[in-house]
Write a protein that binds this DNA or RNA. Structure first.
Lengths: 228, 228
DNA sequence: AAAATAATTTAGTTTTGTCTAAAAATATTT
DNA sequence: AAATATTTTTAGACAAAACTAAATTATTTT
């Protein structure tokens, strides 16, 4: 595996994320994402094309090639493992973790990352609940849906929280919901789309907690996974 | 504290190390150290001068300013803390540690480094036995001398090994000498400058080991510290 | 389908860090 | 102290990654 510049890596990572939604990524989108100018994006796309990391036809957008995707997953793996390390071992808070990992992710030693992974006991999710690709680049794909879209009476695990403002974290703390919390949606009220959910206690501390209410707004910001 | 490029940081660090020996550093010396060309060094020195990190007069060499020294100690702190982390937590071997730390040292978050320091319980020496500057840039200065220069019958602790070839490590392993080993030089033979040394057992496993012999060559590569 | 608008690319600069080759300053020899 | 050798600096170029302004292509509107 060759070595890529920090800038190239940032482009690849950004394309990967934009692709998740779109499929095809455009010059302006990417420029906005990277806070750079469209002209710079075009320059870089030409370079990444000659390196066979993206498929690109002038004026028609681009997407990652197989090699580009592989590279993206390597970078995402580095990023998320460092995030986990920072939160778990160095006691950084959720919000601080991302910026520092943004730098650490460009240190490219494969051995470093694999040993870090082992040191952390092969965590499967970063502190935001996003899955961490394994050393072969395989990533958990089980779909994540917001609480609104969960089927009723289906046990699910909270895996992601999109808004991380102080206010949001305060509310989550109060309701005792965090990444990893297991819960079931018991009812959905069509009047205001609020939900009644039941939280499954991890080690059945108290025998059975009463169900709690979640507003539509909140439920749209909490994501969870479940087995089909 | 401002932010400096990887390249600038590498120059600053190299000057710091060359200064230890010399005092004044020359263009060619630095070019050799950094495996670059003298012309590049001149260019960079002009820049570092305008940034007030070095004192520099054309044709007369250079040395770090107060600010430059401060920066050098920050970089060295990062480098050695990462080395300690890699060896202690990720189980990298001595030889591997340096190259990876070379990259990690350029991640410039002060908070990261201070939290890492805390996580590692504030280690005072890296795996090579070099002292780690504290968060204020203070560094242990107790002098280190090679075994040749130790006074007789003075208890000293091995703190550094300059050569780290396979052959050297093999020999050290055989003689059961490593960083932290406490020893005393009992005699010095002027014929071949070989030494007779006694190793102090850490927790007096066996009551008292017989003295062992160290060749001049070996003794020049092992450094130790002692109280005055 | 032509005109207007929006998106993208090209052309030409800039900055950082490097290089080679030539010129200038310093050091060493004789 | 003049000649020679060495070291250092200058001058001019280049590659990476960014930018601005102008030109080109695609898309939408009328």
């Amino acid at each position: 595996m060759l070595n890529y510049s920090t800038s190239e890596e940032n482009y690849i990572k950004a394309i990967f994320h934009l692709q998740q939604a779109d499929g095809n990524v455009t010059t302006n989108e990417l420029a906005a994402e990277l806070k750079t100018k469209p002209a710079s994006v075009t320059d870089m796309m030409k370079k990444l094309k000659t390196k066979k990391l993206v498929h690109y036809r002038a004026y028609h957008g681009f997407r990652l090639s197989a090699d580009g995707t592989k590279l993206a997953l390597i970078i995402i793996r580095r990023h998320r493992l460092w995030e986990f390390f920072l939160a778990e071992k160095l006691k950084f808070s959720w919000e601080e973790v991302h910026a520092v990992a943004e730098d650490l992710e460009h240190v490219s030693s494969k051995k470093l990352i694999d040993k870090l992974d082992e040191f952390l006991s092969f965590p499967r999710f970063d502190p935001h609940g996003d899955p961490i690709p394994d050393s072969n680049g395989k990533i958990e794909t089980s779909k994540q849906v917001c609480l609104q879209d969960l089927p009723l009476n289906k046990l699910a695990m909270v895996s992601h929280v999109s808004d991380q403002s102080k206010e949001m974290l305060e509310l989550l703390g109060h309701k005792k919901i965090g990444i990893g919390t297991k819960l079931e949606v018991k009812r959905k009220f069509n009047f205001d789309n609020s939900l009644e959910i039941k939280i499954r206690q991890p080690r059945r501390t108290s025998p059975d907690q009463p169900p709690i209410n979640i507003s539509e707004q909140l439920s749209n910001n909490i994501f969870a996974k479940y087995d089909e």
